[in-house]
Design a binder for these strands. Structure first.
Lengths: 207, 207
DNA sequence: TAACATAGAATGAGCGTTCGATCTATAATA
DNA sequence: TATTATAGATCGAACGCTCATTCTATGTTA
């Protein structure tokens, strides 16, 4: 998902692409440690092993780096939900994949960046747009998956009912990002099991 | 919960207290709009209707303001869970109060600040400590509440099982903060109903 | 030689914070 | 009561520093 072309000099030589990614990796780490506004271009450039000025050959400004980081982070979520939908025995796939997803959400390194992105989305319109477009896609995929599962179990649900279940499922899932920050000592595997049960129950809610 | 005395001149005249609160209100709004590091003392002072230098008569530095905002925000959560525990018919109280809590969590104004706090907690040790102490208290209260409900329904659970249920309940709840940012168009009352059902199911999970 | 890669200095704005000078209101004194 | 002393409230300028960004000069490569 290419949101915008943020490189002023639109060279797509492999060298330039690698250099861009190098900057993004360094930026992701700095953003995790200090936040979008706490991290400086000087820090990022140092961490990327190049001069501060040189960053501007690959990104128009700092916000373009933020936007690129956000877009890159959301892509993993998009592929996860897309894969989910493609699975054949969807219910088993959903429950099983949940464990994987839960583990990701409970990784503090990952959580720090994802929560930082959400905080930025709450105030930065450009980031909000990227996040909301990706979220809408995920919701569509998840809705289709849930509809298939429920249909297979004999339920005939309204689109709004399905949409509400998607919200509860997403809330359960995304809440883990905050849990691992607020209580880093939680037992990840046991919580994952409980989440699986909760998802199972959710799929059997009355329409 | 008084974490530290952040006022350099420890006057507790009502005037000073009111002035401190005036600063905190202005700061909360600025932090919501620009983040902890995006908001400047100049902005806060302007919004509070006083000079920038004068802020330092009430707070040692910017981080002390952040800490005070965080502590103040968490107090509402602490009172909520404490009230929950005090209710007589705890199950009905929990489910009913959930609707109220869900409404709070789905308020974008509130969510923006709470997510900002979580993001800051992921990198700022001082904020992390405040957040984690408050979270531990909430978890204890919630665990006691759930234990009472489950005991009333004939279950005899291990402390770890109760603790895990608390985590799932908290995740479900806190996830709403992220949902209202990622999908501001969600139907709040319908989602609240679904959440109530999910909580109900959670309380009947096998031990 | 032409085009790109890179460094590093320069710039101006804004940052958090400090500080001395006033203003204000109450308390002490005559 | 009138006057003075005192302590806190408040302002606004000033400081040193860091920020994001730009510019210029120099390598590097094809």
């Amino acid at each position: 998902m290419q949101i915008t072309d943020s490189s002023p000099h639109a060279t797509d030589a492999p060298r330039a692409t690698a250099r861009r990614q190098q900057i993004l990796n360094a930026a992701a780490q700095c953003f995790r440690e200090h936040g979008f506004h706490g991290a400086s271009i000087a820090q990022i450039s140092k961490s990327a092993g190049m001069s501060a000025g040189h960053i501007y050959h690959y990104f128009e400004n700092k916000e373009a780096i933020i936007a690129a980081i956000v877009a890159q982070d959301l892509e993993s979520l998009l592929t996860l939900t897309a894969e989910l939908r493609a699975a054949c025995n969807v219910r088993a796939a959903l429950i099983e994949r949940a464990a994987e997803g839960v583990a990701d959400q409970l990784d503090p390194i990952n959580a720090a960046l994802k929560v930082e992105i959400a905080a930025e989305a709450a105030r930065n319109p450009r980031v909000a747009q990227i996040v909301r477009e990706a979220d809408a896609t995920c919701r569509r995929e998840l809705a289709a998956t849930i509809r298939a599962i429920r249909h297979g179990a004999g339920h005939e649900d309204s689109p709004t009912a399905i949409g509400d279940m998607v919200e509860v499922l997403a809330s359960l899932f995304e809440g883990l990002l905050l849990r691992t920050i607020r209580n880093p000592g939680l037992d990840r595997s046991r919580v994952a099991q409980r989440i699986q049960i909760a998802i199972n129950d959710l799929l059997d809610q009355p329409g």
